[in-house]
């Protein structure tokens, strides 16, 4: 393994899981999340030499992932978001454990949020520090806090609303 591959391997292993969560949260689709993760890390590999250490490597990778997710829209076949009807939840619940069902339901609720809200909330839940999220999203710290407060409320309401079914 050459030195660049070694560096890349370390970067991939340290960041891929969280980036995958971001992509999964954005698309609510396993295959699409894997595609976006791959696309993100291909760009990371291609641009690694340009990384100037002005920010943390994770921030830099997240920025690439966020932009990759946002432009994924143009390839997306404008799928209609799956409405969380009681039937769908019931059928899914039969196939998976309670815990997995809760996770699936959470992802489905995230999919109902606006694009930037999906990205921000997955970073919040993966415990990315607020200043880093603000830097990734290119918005002020104050603005981010307002958004996060609103998204937390919205997601909790959505989850509780559908948990009743």
């Amino acid at each position: 393994m050459n030195p660049q591959e070694k560096v890349f391997k370390d970067i991939f292993e340290a960041n891929s899981k969280k980036i995958y969560h971001l992509c999964y949260g954005y698309t609510n689709d396993e295959d699409a999340a894997n595609d976006l993760l791959q696309e993100t890390f291909i760009k990371v590999w291609q641009n690694l030499a340009k990384f100037r250490e002005q920010s943390q490597i994770s921030t830099w990778i997240y920025r690439i992932a966020v932009n990759t997710c946002l432009t994924y829209l143009k390839k997306e076949k404008r799928q209609h978001k799956e409405e969380l009807t009681p039937n769908i939840i019931e059928n899914k619940a039969e196939e998976v454990s309670d815990k997995q069902n809760q996770i699936n339901q959470l992802y489905a609720c995230i999919a109902l949020l606006e694009e930037n809200e999906r990205l921000i909330i997955t970073m919040v839940m993966d415990e990315i520090p607020y200043p880093e999220i603000a830097e990734i999203a290119g918005i002020s710290d104050g603005n981010l806090r307002v958004k996060i407060h609103r998204i937390k409320q919205k997601l909790t309401e959505l989850y509780n609303q559908y948990e009743k079914f």
């Binding site: 340009k50 920025r63 966020v66 932009n67 946002l70 999203a137």
Partner: peptide, 8 residues
């Protein structure tokens, strides 16, 4: 790709 999302 490392620009802010808005600018990108």
């Amino acid at each position: 790709l490392t620009e802010t999302p808005k600018f990108y």
